Measured scan of single mutants.
Amino acid sequence: TEEFVRLWREAVRHNQTLHWNGTDFIPGDEWAEEFARREEEKL
């Protein structure tokens, strides 16, 4: 979602874990980066 992408970019900028829907998205984590890339492509 647009909100997820916005929060993810913020988390990456501050190198912080994003807690989203009970899942931890960690900047630099391969799975999280791939998920975020797919979400961005949907926008």
Rank of each mutant, 00 (worst) to 15 (best):
T1C: 15
T1N: 13
T1Q: 09
E2K: 11
E2T: 10
E2W: 10
E2Q: 12
E2M: 11
E2L: 13
E3T: 10
E3I: 10
E3K: 07
F4A: 00
F4K: 00
F4D: 01
F4C: 13
V5N: 10
V5S: 05
V5H: 07
V5W: 05
R6Q: 09
R6A: 08
R6E: 12
L7N: 08
L7V: 02
L7P: 00
L7C: 15
L7H: 09
W8L: 06
W8F: 03
R9G: 12
R9Q: 15
R9E: 14
E10M: 04
E10W: 08
E10A: 03
A11Y: 02
V12R: 08
R13D: 09
R13K: 15
R13W: 10
R13S: 12
H14L: 15
H14E: 13
N15A: 08
Q16A: 12
Q16I: 14
Q16E: 12
T17N: 06
T17S: 09
T17D: 02
T17V: 14
T17I: 15
L18H: 01
L18I: 06
L18W: 00
L18R: 00
H19K: 09
H19I: 08
H19N: 12
H19L: 07
H19F: 08
W20T: 02
W20R: 01
W20V: 03
W20Y: 12
W20A: 01
W20L: 05
N21F: 12
N21D: 10
N21R: 14
N21G: 11
G22E: 07
G22F: 06
T23V: 15
T23D: 08
F25K: 01
F25Y: 15
F25I: 03
F25A: 00
I26W: 06
I26D: 07
I26V: 12
I26G: 03
P27M: 02
P27N: 02
P27K: 02
P27R: 01
G28S: 04
G28I: 01
D29L: 06
D29R: 04
D29H: 09
E30Y: 11
W31D: 06
E33C: 11
E33N: 07
E34G: 08
E34S: 09
E34L: 07
E34H: 08
E34M: 10
E34Q: 11
F35E: 03
F35T: 04
F35P: 02
F35I: 10
A36L: 05
A36F: 13
A36V: 12
A36K: 01
R37W: 06
R37I: 05
R37K: 12
R38C: 15
R38M: 13
R38K: 14
E39N: 09
E39L: 15
E39G: 05
E40K: 08
E41N: 11
E41C: 14
E41M: 13
E41S: 11
K42D: 03
K42I: 07
K42F: 06
L43I: 10
L43V: 07
L43P: 03
L43A: 07
L43E: 04
L43R: 05
